[in-house]
Design a protein around this nucleic acid. Structure first.
Length: 428
RNA sequence: GGAGGGAUGGCAGAGUGGUCGAAUGCACCGGUCUUGAAAACCGGCAACGGUUUACCCCGUUCUAGGGUUCAAAUCCCUAUCCCUCCGCCA
């Protein structure tokens, strides 16, 4: 959520900055609503003030034992007037709030201008794609041949875009998650967390999935009408970041660095026909998430650091990758700056996204009322939040299978994963 | 599943219809003292919104949403969460 002051005092400038990311702000509509809000709010508060004053004098008169009937007569239809104004004001404020909650974050000044992914800018490249002296297969052919990936049974049990993994491939998937988690907790200073996979509406509003993107999520159907619906997390960013919702943390506790390995669930509404083959786009996949809650002065440095943490996993696995900074038009809803890390996939002969690391600045913090106590004036101030995948386990599995394939269809186990595989060197 | 109790500032915890935005303690900030620190003492200290250059002033907020009343932290209803006892259970 943007600072409401932007919509009051810097509407034109805000509209310009949002236009850079392809979002059109209805300036006339908003300023009309704002004008109305201002007069309504002043009128309402004046009515409240006079009601409070009368009530107070009644209380004082009663305390002195005086007759209050003449003061009572002054009340008249004040209550009815107040109710009417209040109803009107509440509706207006709700409309404005929904509008504010639906606006994306402002891009950081350092983000390149652009319309779509073609305008993203590569910032670095690591490793060299291996040259194979045989025809490479994709992870689907390799996995099925090894009887490690079972798409047919997944369809039978649940439906498309789900997977059953078996044997050493299932273990490899588990090994990847464990390795990532151990690296981030052991080397990068993150605290491991076990978190709920089902979250409530407030959490989704806090991180920005709601009110706009509910259709991207799976929602539970409550047993009773009154019970609230819970939703499956699309990323551990939701529970991890919401840890600081409605809290004021001590500045000395910053930065807070959390990580979790969780399943993630995405409905993939609107992506029918895209990446239908294989593990790239699934309704359910494992991901190790990195979240940092930081002092506002340090969030850009923290983004660089967090991105490096994610990259280090690919380096340890010796998987070639490149890192791009997303242009204004390609960034996610809540991000002010985003690095995507893309891993080399030989079967597709291209780099594919495996991690997305974003500085949300105070966008989520304002929604969540996540604050710290500022040492300068001893007042609460909004925190900055960051998140990134470190990494998407399913896609990393794809990358390992494809990059480490041998001519005979076996898969060499990357060195760093062997301790997690009982010393196994080759899957086959 | 049955019976009962609770939710108040950063934290702990008073407050049961009327100058209550709310005692007190801790924490925090400023000061005195000290070579420095600690202790002690003195003072300050809720958030959000409106108006304003600013001070002031006004409004809202005691888990959330409704209701009663001239007036609600306080009374009523509903929801959520926590605790205690009984039952059941991995």
């Amino acid at each position: 959520m943007l600072d409401p002051k932007f919509l009051r005092n810097e509407l034109e400038d805000t509209a310009k900055r949002l236009a850079a990311r392809g979002f059109t702000l209805d300036v006339d509509h908003i300023s009309a609503l704002e004008d109305k809000r201002k007069t309504l709010q002043v009128e309402t508060e004046e009515l409240q003030a006079s009601r409070n004053a009368i009530s107070k004098s009644i209380g004082q008169a009663k305390a002195r034992g005086e007759d209050t009937s003449s003061i009572m007569a002054q009340v008249g239809d004040l209550g009815a007037q107040l109710d009417a104004k209040k109803t009107e004001l509440t509706a207006l404020l709700q409309e404005l709030n929904l509008l504010a909650m639906s606006l994306p974050n402002l891009p950081d000044d350092a983000v390149p201008q652009g319309a779509d992914e073609n305008d993203n800018v590569e910032v670095r490249r690591w490793g060299t794609p291996k040259s194979f002296d045989f025809e490479v297969k994709d992870h689907l052919d390799l996995g099925e041949a090894l009887q490690g990936l079972d798409f047919k049974n997944a369809v039978k049990i649940t439906g498309s875009r789900f997977i059953v993994m078996k044997g050493q491939i299932a273990r490899l998937n588990r090994a990847l998650g464990q390795f990532m988690l151990d690296t981030h907790t052991g080397k990068h200073g993150y605290t491991e967390a076990y978190v709920p996979l089902l979250v409530n509406e407030d959490s989704l509003l806090g991180t920005g999935q709601l009110p706009k993107f509910g259709e991207d999520l799976f929602h539970t159907k409550p047993a009773t009408e009154e019970a609230q619906s819970l939703s499956l997390i699309p990323t551990a960013e939701v529970p991890l970041t919401n840890l600081v919702r409605d809290t004021i943390v001590d500045e000395a506790e910053l930065p807070i660095k959390m990580t979790a390995l969780t399943a993630c669930f995405r409905s993939e509404a609107g992506s029918y026909g895209r990446d239908t083959r294989g593990l790239i786009r699934q309704h359910q996949f494992d991901k190790v998430e990195l979240v940092q809650i930081v002092h506002p002065d340090h969030s850009m440095a923290a983004l660089d650091e967090l991105t490096k943490h994610a990259e280090s996993i690919l380096e340890a696995l010796e998987l070639p990758y490149r890192t791009v900074v997303l242009c204004t038009g390609d960034m996610g809803f809540g991000a002010s700056k985003t690095f995507d890390i893309e891993v080399w996939l030989p079967a597709q002969n291209t780099y594919r996204e495996i991690s997305s690391c974003s500085n949300m600045k105070d966008f989520q913090a304002r929604r969540m009322q996540a604050r710290y106590r500022n040492k300068v004036d001893n007042k609460p101030a909004l925190l900055h939040t960051l998140n990134g995948s470190g990494l998407a386990v399913g896609r990393t599995l794809v990358a390992v299978i494809e990059n480490y394939q041998n001519a005979d269809g076996t898969i060499t186990v990357p060195t760093v994963l062997r301790p997690y595989m009982g010393g196994l060197e080759v899957i086959g």
